[in-house]
Write a protein that binds this DNA or RNA. Structure first.
Lengths: 195, 195
DNA sequence: CGATTCTTTGAAAACAGTCAATCTGTGTGG
DNA sequence: CCACACAGATTGACTGTTTTCAAAGAATCG
C-alpha cells in the first residue's frame, strides 16, 4: 500500500522503469507514526530520505524558552527529513513528529544515493525536487522580508488552502513566525473585511 | 584573469580535468559591472549561471512602497542569479545590481546544463552547491522564525564578518528584514553591552 | 459527559517602524 | 586645498504592530 503511492509518485515525476522501481522498493522501509510520535528528535543523526504517503508531519526546533518554531510541514507526496544532518553526519537541531497519524517511506542515505547514480532518471528527479525546494525556500524568505503578519497568513491560505483545515492554527502561526494570539486576531480582522 | 579565479574555484571544489575546464571556458562570458549597475532587472528573464570573481552584488525585490528587500549578497567565489526565472523561463521578480565595482563569469543555461551532464564531476559540484544553498536558506528561515532583530544581527556578524565592513549598514538591515534605524539602535545597544 | 487541547479575547508592555532632523565621513569641483 | 554636496548613519519623538500573560470560551476525543 504505502510503497504503491510512492511508486506512483516516481512514475508521475520521472521515467523510472518498473524494474528500477522494484530496486527502489527493495531498499525502502515503511514507517507508521501515530499522532505526536517522533520521526526524528533533536540530537539524533538523520540518515534517510523520507517520503510521506499518508498524514502529515512537521519539522521544528525548540528554543531555550521552550517555544517551537516550525520549519516545514509535509503531507502526502511531500518529502521530509533534515538535509543538514544527512549531509554533515552531525546531530540534528530539528525535531520531526506527526501532526496526524501518518505513513512514510524511508530509504537510507547510502542505498538511495547509489540508486540515484545508477538510475539517471531518479537522480534527475531528485535534483529537480531539490531545485524546487530551494526556490520555495527563497520565496519564503522573501515573505519574511516583505510581508506583515496578516499578509503572510493570506499568502499561506492562498498557497496551501488544504493545509489550513488539517493543521492546528497554533502550528500555522509558528510556521509563519507569529504567535497564535496574533494569528487569531489577524483572522478576525480579515473576515471582518471580506468574509 | 576573471576566468582563472573561476577555474581555480572549480578545481578546488571538484575533479574537473584541465581539458574540461577549457570546455567550460569556451562557453563562459566575462562581465564587468560598475557600482549600482544592474545585472538583472525586474521583468527580465534570467538565462545564466553567474559566478562572482570580484566585487559584490545583491539580489533584491522592490515592493509597492518602494522599499527594497535584499534576498542575498554574493561576493568573490559565490554564485548569483535567479533560479526561479531560470527554471521557469518567466520574468524575474528580482533585481540584481553591483554593490561595488564587480566582475562575473556568466554561462548561459543551455551550454552549462549540457556541460553538467557530460562532465559528471561538474554536475556533482553543482548539485553539492545547490544542496548547501538549500541548507543555508533553511537556516536563514530558522533565524527569521526564532531570532529578534538584535540576535539576527549578531548572527550575521558572526557568520559573515567580512561582509559587515564591505556592505552599507542599510543593506544589511534590509537583508535581515529590519529598518536601518533599528539596526543602528541595535548596534548601539550591543556595544554598550560589551564593546 | 469530563478532560484535554486549541482558540479567542482583553489589557498592558515590549518591540520595531516611521518621519524628520542632525551628524559624519567621503569625494568632487571650484 | 577648501567648501560643498551627497550618501549613509544616528538620534529623538511618536505611532503602530506584535508579544506577553492571564482568563474565558469552543472544540475534540476517549
Amino acid at each position: 500500500m504505502g510503497f504503491d503511492i510512492f511508486g506512483q509518485y516516481i512514475k508521475d515525476k520521472s521515467q523510472v522503469s518498473d524494474e528500477d522501481l522494484r530496486r527502489i522498493e527493495a531498499v525502502s522501509q515503511m514507517k507508521k507514526l501515530r499522532k505526536r510520535q517522533y520521526l526524528l528528535q533533536e540530537g539524533d543523526i538523520w540518515k534517510y530520505n523520507a517520503f510521506v504517503t499518508k498524514g502529515c508531519v512537521r519539522t521544528y526546533t525548540v528554543d531555550e524558552k521552550g517555544n517551537e518554531h516550525i520549519q516545514s510541514f509535509a503531507v502526502e507526496n511531500w518529502w521530509t527529513g533534515d538535509r543538514e544532518s544527512l549531509l554533515s553526519g552531525q546531530p540534528s537541531r530539528f525535531n520531526i513528529d506527526a501532526v496526524e497519524d501518518s505513513e512514510l517511506v524511508l530509504i537510507a542515505k547510502e542505498p538511495f544515493d547509489l540508486l540515484c547514480k545508477t538510475i539517471p532518471a531518479l537522480g534527475a528527479m531528485v535534483n529537480g525536487i531539490l531545485e524546487r525546494s530551494f526556490i520555495a525556500s527563497q520565496n519564503r524568505i522573501q515573505n519574511f522580508l516583505s510581508l506583515s503578519a496578516e499578509e503572510k497568513y493570506l499568502q499561506f491560505l492562498n498557497k496551501y488552502p488544504e493545509l489550513t483545515t488539517r493543521i492546528p492554527q497554533s502550528m500555522i502561526a509558528s510556521y509563519l513566525g507569529i504567535t497564535p494570539e496574533t494569528l487569531s486576531r489577524v483572522r478576525k480582522e480579515s473576515y471582518r473585511k471580506k468574509g
